[in-house]
């Protein structure tokens, strides 16, 4: 920030004081340096801050959760308003290349054998919520119930927001850390902000694979790029191993 050409027309107060220092420039350089250090080392600082906030505010809601660095979800929707459906009206349709197309109610899902996962939710843009409690039904269990045909290669998901779609290969869908979830963040039903009453949770992949407001599962012979994937995101969204990077995976994927 040296504007040398105008140096001759300085204020008297500043010309008088030969001791004047370019503090303004130092403030700017200082902030930028701190900012860059924050980018490179901020992750570990954020971990500490997040843990501290969680300790003070275990519920994860309220004012403390708004503090920067708090381990909170950011709510993404791709439609104009927040999709919402009651547990009573909710249905999950399973169809496509299966012998037994079925439609399940919310209570049907609750009655199935449940699994519990305590795993991170990692957004591709950088934010992360560690150790989220998830509960639901193994996706592989639902696939087994419908008897997937041999020609099947992929599983497609549709959201009742009417826009969002996702997909997994059949192998990915059969993993033991991929569930159709009806509880998250403690023993609470999933709120509509978080994609309730039922959403997908794909633990080893970035958050956009975990389709919110899940309403339809279609078994197909090929993977169809979903909403974000049409906008350039990777279809195989392994955490730390996709979307431009091959860093060490955050979770043992």
């Amino acid at each position: 920030m040296d504007f040398g050409s105008t140096r001759n027309r300085l204020n008297r107060a500043d010309v008088d004081d030969q001791l004047s220092k370019p503090i303004g420039r130092r403030i700017i350089i200082g902030i930028v340096a701190l900012g860059c250090a924050g980018i490179v080392f901020g992750e570990s600082v954020q971990r500490v801050v997040g843990r501290a906030i969680t300790k003070i505010n275990p519920s994860g809601s309220g004012i403390a959760s708004l503090f920067p660095g708090a381990n909170t979800f950011r709510i993404y929707t791709v439609t104009g308003s927040l999709p919402s459906e009651s547990t009573k009206a909710y249905t999950l349709k399973v169809g496509g290349l299966v012998n037994r197309p079925t439609t399940y109610s919310y209570n049907d899902l609750l009655a199935m054998p449940s699994v519990r996962l305590d795993k991170d939710f990692q957004c591709v843009t950088g934010w992360r919520v560690p150790n989220v409690h998830w509960q639901g039904v193994l996706l592989s269990h639902i696939l087994d119930l419908s008897q997937v045909q041999p020609s099947a290669k992929a599983v497609l998901f549709k959201s009742f927001d009417g826009v969002y779609t996702e997909s997994l290969t059949l192998d990915q869908a059969k993993r033991s850390d991929v569930i159709v979830a009806y509880e998250m963040l403690g023993d609470r039903p999933i709120s509509s902000e978080h994609g309730g009453p039922v959403r997908l949770y794909v633990a080893p992949m970035y958050g956009y694979k975990s389709c919110k407001w899940l309403s339809e599962i279609e078994i197909s012979d090929q993977v169809v790029p979903g909403y974000w994937e049409n906008l350039g995101y990777d279809v195989n969204a392994w955490i730390g191993r996709s979307n431009g990077r091959s860093d060490a995976p955050v979770d043992g994927a």
Binding site: G35, G38, I39, V40, F41, G42, E43, V45, Q46, V49, P68, G69, Q122, V124, T125, G126, W127, R128, I239, G240, R245, D247, V250
Partner: peptide, 10 residues
């Protein structure tokens, strides 16, 4: 990924 988390925090 770590930079993204750091950048979000900053």
């Amino acid at each position: 990924l770590a930079w993204r988390t750091g950048a979000t925090f900053v």
